[in-house]
Every structure is written in structure tokens, then in C-alpha cells.
């Protein structure tokens, strides 16, 4: 294809997105669009399945049967969401195995929040409330993103996710109005998860490399800082309502902005975790890799069986 032809196709392509038309898998798309989408959708999928681990850690220890089934169902949903997203990604011409390979070799990233340990039951509350809360803010705009399969996967994800945050908040609320010991447990979890949750929105706009392009392709509708602010403004009153304190001495309502001012995020910690040196990076990856490797003989067996059955059936037909 000539350079001129590509330029004109690109122009038509950008115009389609501008008109809010969806891009579908077999449509022509610029290579950069494809690559960016593979990167973002797979990162999202990886986050879902790595995200199963910190919560999965408490399934066997959930304090009541009701909590146990709710947690199991939630972690299972994350597997489902991972699956929807991997499928969406596969429409771009990459296989799930290749995507796993990228995850397992550290080439692909996932949300850093899951590299923090879940050390008490209250962490189940904090994750549902804060981490899912932040995820929802990030995800809702994606239901309208330009790539059809991604948008459709996100519609399903968002619909299913609505119980996750409630589940978490309910856990926190129950702890906060429980015994002093329980309330301390809830406050401690909030203290540990608050800042990492704010980091989930990514670097500040000034530092963010992808924002402009992502806005154009509707992979993003608001900037990192805008989304972070939205999260803080919506979460602070929720904490107050149940008598918990946000661990930020600089947090203050700004009448003029009609928003909360907040303290400085520790970006050194952010980059340390992103670069693989968080408290649980190694453990999370080991868990994923061993699940995959230990499952190899099972997957092989299923294929071998399917082939034998096919052979058997075709022989019968003769």
C-alpha cells in the first residue's frame, strides 16, 4: 500500500471514530491502533486474573458462609471478566497463549494494586470498596470506547461489577460498626489501601505518555488526574459515613473548586511497584505461571481426547 493510500485510510479511520462509529475486528485499522489496543485490553485482562489472587487468598478463611459465597462469586467474576477481555483482545489477531506468554515473561503489565498483600479480612472490604470503586471509574467510560469488541466486553464487565463494590463497602461498614477491634481492622485496611488506590489512575497528566492518543481513540474520556479527583470526591463522604478516616492529613474540602484538595502521592513507591519491586510482584507471577504450567498436562489431555473422539466418530461413520 502506498504511503498516500495509508494516509487517506488513516484520515477516514479517524473520522469514523470522530463520528462515534465503532471499529470492528475485520475493519482496516492503523497498526498503532491495533498495538495500543492489544496492550491496553490485555493489560486489563491480566489485571483481572492477577487480581483474583489477593482476594482468592481469603476464600478459605472468610468469616461466614454468606461472605464466603459472595467472595467466591466475586473472584469468579474476575475470571469471567479476564476471559471476556482476552477474547476481545484475540479479535485483534493475537492468541491467549501469546498474551499469557507476555504476562509470564514480564513483558506485559497489570495493575500494580494487586502487588500489595491481603493480610486481614478487612482487606477484602477495602479492595471491593476502593479498588473496585477506582476500577469502575476507569471502566465506565470504556463502555463507549471505539473498538467494538472491547466496548461490548466492558458493558458486560460493568454490569456484573456493580455488586463488587457494594460487597466491599458492606464488609467495611459491618467492621466499622462492630467491636473496637473490628473498627481498627477496617481503619488499618483503609490506611494501607488508600494511596495505592489513588495510584491506580496512573501518573499525573504531566507525566502520562499515552493520554492524548488514548483520548482520540476513546480509550480514555477523562485524564488520569480528573478521574483521580472524581474518585476522591466520591469516596471521602463514603468513609465519613461509616466513621473511618482517610489517611491524608492534607485532605481538605476546597469550596471554590467544589472538590477535595489532597496530599502528595508517593510516586517513588508507584514506580518501584510498576517496575516489579512491590511487596508481592514475585509471588503473584509465580502463582500465575505455576497454575499455567501445572495445567499444561490437563489441557494437552483434553486436546488428545478430543482428537481421539473425532477419529473414533469418523471411523464409525464409514
Amino acid at each position: 500500500m502506498s504511503e498516500e493510500k495509508i494516509k487517506s485510510l488513516e484520515k477516514q479511520f479517524e473520522d469514523r471514530i470522530l463520528r462515534d462509529e465503532k471499529i470492528e475486528p475485520k475493519d482496516w485499522m492503523p497498526e498503532k491502533y491495533r498495538q495500543t489496543h492489544i496492550r491496553q485490553i490485555s493489560q486489563h485482562a491480566h489485571s483481572e486474573i492477577v487480581g483474583m489472587l489477593p482476594e482468592g487468598n481469603w476464600i478459605t478463611r472468610a468469616p461466614s458462609l454468606r461472605r464466603k459465597v459472595a467472595l467466591l462469586a466475586k473472584v469468579q467474576d474476575e475470571a469471567g471478566h479476564g476471559l471476556y477481555l482476552y477474547s476481545a483482545c484475540e479479535t485483534l489477531g493475537i492468541s491467549r497463549e501469546e498474551l499469557y506468554e507476555q504476562l509470564h515473561t514480564g513483558k506485559a503489565k497489570y495493575s500494580s494494586i494487586f502487588n500489595y498483600p491481603t493480610i486481614t479480612w478487612a482487606d477484602m472490604g477495602a479492595i471491593g470498596w476502593l479498588v473496585d470503586g477506582a476500577a469502575i471509574i476507569n471502566q465506565v467510560p470504556l463502555c463507549n470506547t471505539s473498538y467494538g469488541p472491547y466496548a461490548r466486553a466492558m458493558v458486560r464487565v460493568c454490569k456484573e461489577e456493580s455488586f463488587h463494590q457494594r460487597q466491599g463497602y458492606e464488609i467495611m461498614m459491618t467492621l466499622a460498626k462492630g467491636t473496637p477491634e473490628q473498627k481498627d481492622m477496617a481503619q488499618d485496611a483503609l490506611n494501607r489501601w488508600w494511596w495505592p488506590s489513588l495510584m491506580m489512575f496512573g501518573p499525573t497528566d504531566a507525566e502520562s505518555v499515552h493520554t492524548a492518543q488514548s483520548m482520540k481513540w476513546k480509550l480514555k474520556r477523562k485524564t488520569n488526574d480528573e478521574l483521580r479527583q472524581q474518585f476522591i470526591d466520591q469516596t471521602v463522604p463514603q468513609a465519613e459515613l461509616i466513621g473511618l478516616t482517610i489517611p491524608d492529613p492534607d485532605l481538605k474540602w476546597n469550596e471554590e473548586r467544589q472538590s477535595y484538595d489532597f496530599g502528595e502521592i508517593d510516586w517513588d513507591e508507584f514506580w518501584q511497584v510498576v517496575k516489579g519491586h512491590g511487596p508481592m510482584n514475585k509471588e503473584r507471577m509465580n502463582a500465575r505461571v505455576s497454575a499455567w504450567e501445572n495445567g499444561a498436562w490437563v489441557r494437552d489431555a483434553a486436546i488428545a481426547y478430543a482428537e481421539k473422539q473425532k477419529e473414533y466418530k469418523s471411523k464409525q461413520a464409514i
Binding site: 458462609l65 467466591l72 473472584v75 469468579q76 475470571a79 482476552y86 502463582a287 505455576s290 497454575a291 490437563v298
Partner: peptide, 28 residues
């Protein structure tokens, strides 16, 4: 429930969790 997140494939993981949920529901 111990297996949730560690299954041999994502699909199988989801299936096993479903069974676990059924059993715990019956238990309740």
C-alpha cells in the same frame, strides 16, 4: 474453593468455582 484462581485454564477455573458455589449454597 482453594483452587479458585489456580485452575488449569480460565474456563475450568470458572467451572470449578461454580461447583463450589453450588455446594456451599446447599450447605447453607
Amino acid at each position: 474453593g482453594e483452587l479458585c484462581g489456580h485452575g488449569p485454564s480460565l474456563e475450568t477455573d470458572i467451572a470449578c468455582t461454580n461447583i463450589s458455589l453450588d455446594l456451599l449454597g446447599q450447605t447453607r
